[in-house]
Design a protein around this nucleic acid. Structure first.
Length: 279
DNA sequence: CTCCAGGTTCCGG
DNA sequence: CCGGAACATGGA
């Protein structure tokens, strides 16, 4: 039950945990319970001060990316109204530093799914196939390892409501477990090569690869283009001009948002998803 | 009931 | 390079 303070970093914990980067944190009293790798973790923010269970302090500091120079990062964003209102809406949101396979696996299961359902899938997979962890007599589950998935059958994953994604997650896990795709090796590649390597995994296209790069490989320039981002770019930056192809959107995003484009992307995504057609 | 969701893959212009 | 269609499931 003992908590330690991590000070008062520029961070909005709730905003960060609920922004569609990670999908398994659950409310527990005044704070949140979850797993950072195989470390059961309780996080709580009171009047700006961040607390964590003793023993998870260094894991949390790393996971929450408290070392990212957030003020400086936000200072690099474009000055247009769309970017600035997203920034204002997302003040204190950080890009998490998630375990590599967890980032790859969860975003393989994310295609054509609402955030709520991705969360449901994550919880089911963890509970059935992940390592059971515990803190203060409360159970949480680690994301299943590639090896844990590799021994299953497609039907086992279909039973978790993965639909057609089951085959992809299983095949991807087997490639990683067999060492045919080496995620630690990917971490040493340049952005472009790293993306290409990740896209060897079934179910990993350009968008999922970029999510994995941004959330699991510290590539803060990676800019995933999903339906929400596409909507924002089309309607706010191209203002309904005809023939805006996927390619032109990709090129625009790669050049318009700078070295921390991934941060800006996450802010645009979250802002759009929560405010579209509500003002 | 219909529409759509943090897409990928394959196939024909 | 570009647009379409198939692929599963559940929340709104």
């Amino acid at each position: 039950m003992k908590l330690v303070s991590l000070g008062r970093p520029l961070l909005d914990l709730e905003l960060t945990l609920n922004s569609g980067q990670t999908f398994h944190w659950v409310r527990e009293g005044e704070g949140w319970m979850g797993a950072i790798g195989t470390q059961a973790t309780y996080l709580e923010q009171r009047d700006g001060e961040l607390f964590v269970n003793a023993g998870a302090a260094s894991a949390a500091t790393n996971y929450l990316a408290l070392d990212h120079p957030l003020e400086e990062i936000c200072g690099t964003f474009p000055s247009d109204a769309v970017s600035q209102s997203a920034l204002e809406f997302c003040r204190g949101m950080r890009i998490l530093r998630q375990p590599k396979w967890e980032a790859v696996g969860t975003f393989i299961t994310s295609s054509m799914k609402q955030v709520a359902h991705i969360a449901q899938i994550s919880h089911t997979l963890r509970r059935k196939f992940g390592e059971a962890l515990e803190w203060s007599s409360k159970a949480v589950y680690a994301y299943p390892t590639p090896t844990a998935f590799a021994g299953l059958e497609e039907a086992d994953l279909r039973a978790c409501a993965l639909g057609y994604r089951a085959k992809n997650l299983l095949a991807a896990a087997r490639l990683v477990a067999a060492g045919e795709v080496d995620l630690e090796g990917v971490a040493r590649l340049e952005d472009c090569e790293a993306q290409k390597e990740l896209m060897r995994l079934p179910g990993v296209g350009e968008k999922v690869a970029n999510c994995a790069l941004l959330f699991g490989f510290e590539r803060l320039r990676a800019f995933p283009v999903d339906v929400w981002i596409e909507r924002v770019i089309r309607e706010k930056y191209f203002e309904g001009s005809a023939k805006v192809t996927k390619n032109s959107i990709r090129e625009f995003c790669a050049s318009a948002f700078g070295p921390y484009g991934g941060y800006m992307q996450q802010y645009l995504f979250h802002h759009a998803r929560l405010t579209w057609k509500k003002g």
